[in-house]
Design a binder for these strands. Structure first.
Lengths: 154, 154
DNA sequence: CTTGCCCTTGACGTCAATGTGAGGTTTTAG
DNA sequence: CTAAAACCTCACATTGACGTCAAGGGCAAG
């Protein structure tokens, strides 16, 4: 298969594939005229690479990891890398969850059916930010938040 | 409080704080000599901003979201934005989970206690990538994977 | 007053995964 | 055979959240 076909099937650009090759993540055979040729399995390989990129792994790290995929064996160093990247991902998921919770609180407040949009009345998940007011104490925790599962189910 | 104090307490650089101000995310009073002054609440505000940045929200989006935090009200447009960003985050979490699963499979294989490191014997979570071999069929699903919870508990 | 640390603005550097365009060759369809 | 489509290499552009350096001003302690 030529590069365009792989790109299409894997859902990436040909530019990306050439970049992967440049980074040592993907190899190709060449026709006598110099065009790249790939086996079918390259599609799956590219999808895996993309998955790692999407997860925020830099190409250098992926480069160190891919041999493990191929050989089924991980050197102690590679093993450590696997573990640390796993931890990074877990931490990133926690960060995302925290941000999503923050958005959820905002959505809850914005969704609040009563007309208590007055900042002085709602429970301050965050203190209203007023730079001109440098001597403020914590506002009253007042209004009860109302559960509203109106948006996304997950 | 001056900028260095806020930066220290919020765990960011002064450069970042000036950048936030430049982007309209953070405001400050000025002393007669031009130095920035912040209220205590700025620390919390900066932490929130950082949380959003960490979650991959661009500054322009955060800029649109912060007024909702302050007013407790979301315009329909802002509400839509809240929802779409929530979806983005949820999708990103799914991507991370998928990548983590991939790493887990690699860890499982690498951890395999038996000497079946031979690629021909293990179950191919991914086909071994061999560009010179364009006419390969799926290998045998053979070796059973062994549960190994040796690394991270989460 | 000076030492030293913190602050100011401004502007250029960074990093990484591509996008994009130029200029030329190869393959394919008719 | 010819024109379109796909491919090649090279190389500069982009994006975003900062880092970093330069050149200078503000302010407490000794």
């Amino acid at each position: 298969m030529r590069i365009g076909e792989i790109a299409h099937q894997a859902g990436v650009s040909t530019r990306a594939l050439r970049y992967y090759e440049e980074q040592g993540l993907l190899t190709s055979e060449r026709t006598p005229s110099g065009q790249r040729t790939y086996p079918e399995s390259a599609v799956e390989r590219v999808r895996l690479i993309q998955q790692f990129f999407t997860a925020g792994l830099p190409s250098r790290t992926i480069l160190q990891l891919l041999p493990c995929v191929d050989t089924g064996h991980a050197s102690p160093k590679a093993f450590e890398l696997l573990a640390s990247e796993r931890n990074r991902i877990t931490a990133a998921m926690a960060d995302l969850a925290a941000a999503r919770d923050a958005l959820d609180r905002m959505i809850d407040i914005a969704n609040h059916p009563t007309p208590e949009h007055c900042p002085a009345l709602r429970e301050p998940a965050w203190a209203p930010y007023n730079p001109a007011d440098a001597t403020r104490t914590a506002p009253h925790p007042t209004a009860a938040r109302v559960a509203s599962a109106t948006l996304i189910t997950m």
